[in-house]
Design a protein around this nucleic acid. Structure first.
Length: 220
DNA sequence: ACGAGGATGCTCT
DNA sequence: GAGCATCCTCGTG
């Protein structure tokens, strides 16, 4: 598998473009633990001016300086840097930093279609009952790939963890929706996914979830 | 099939 | 003390 990693230049672009262009790209972990690869089928974009962004509000309006102790400071790092964080005290979520250094932005990798290293993925994810459940969610794919805090802040442009264009590119239809699991910025349609992929996460976009909460009955 | 609730730890108020 | 870019289990139909 001699695949050329995507370079920092790929991520040094508007975050929405990167998020869309990452669909169909391979996520690869290649190190002493083994070789794992999966095709990305779902992403979400988070930008500096986005209330759901971890780095939201840490840029001083007057000086333009970024508070170095603020949460999300690492989201202003060099494009191609990893941003891994713990959610709900239990699950690690993998992002790749976008935009030029000093500008905040990231793409959350939400789901991949397992391609290689399936057995290794099951070892990290004993709850998975089939291949589809190995990595159809942002917390699941980090378990399948063994990603945790130790991969935070590394460059995702070289082993052990990197992205690569799939040589066997399959044409696909891309859809968008609002993002999943958030309470702020819920109306921004910044989730991208491969339309007909069974490996997309089962989550419900936040705007639809909020609507259902308002009207609990009314079914079919 | 679907919904409710719990797990669990870090950050911010 | 609340909220969180989630997932799993166990109820009820």
């Amino acid at each position: 598998m001699n695949l050329t990693p995507l370079t920092a230049g790929f991520f040094d672009r508007p975050t929405l473009d990167v998020a869309r262009d990452m669909l169909g790209v391979l996520l690869i972990r290649d190190d002493e633990t083994g070789y794992r690869a999966g095709r990305i089928v779902e992403t979400e974009a988070y930008t500096q001016d986005d209330p759901a962004f971890h780095g939201w509000g840490i840029v001083d309006r007057h000086t333009g300086l970024i508070k170095p102790d603020g949460r999300g400071y690492d989201l202003f790092a060099k494009p191609g840097t990893s941003y891994v964080y713990l959610i709900y005290g239990m699950y690690w979520l993998l992002n790749v930093v976008t935009e030029r250094e000093g500008v905040g932005g990231a793409v959350l990798i939400r789901a991949v279609e397992p391609m290689h290293g399936i057995d290794l993925m099951y070892e990290g994810r004993p709850a998975a009952r089939n291949e589809r459940e190995l990595a159809n969610g942002p917390g699941k794919l980090t378990q399948a790939f063994g990603v945790d805090k130790s991969q935070h802040g590394i460059m995702l442009t070289e082993p052990p963890l990197y992205f690569a264009a799939d040589p066997a590119v399959a044409p696909c239809t891309i859809s968008t929706s609002c993002r999943i699991g958030i309470t702020r910025g819920i109306d921004l349609p910044w989730r991208f996914f491969v339309d007909d992929s069974p490996y997309v996460s089962p989550g419900i976009p936040s705007d639809i979830a909020a609507e259902r909460r308002r009207e609990p009955e009314r079914r079919r």
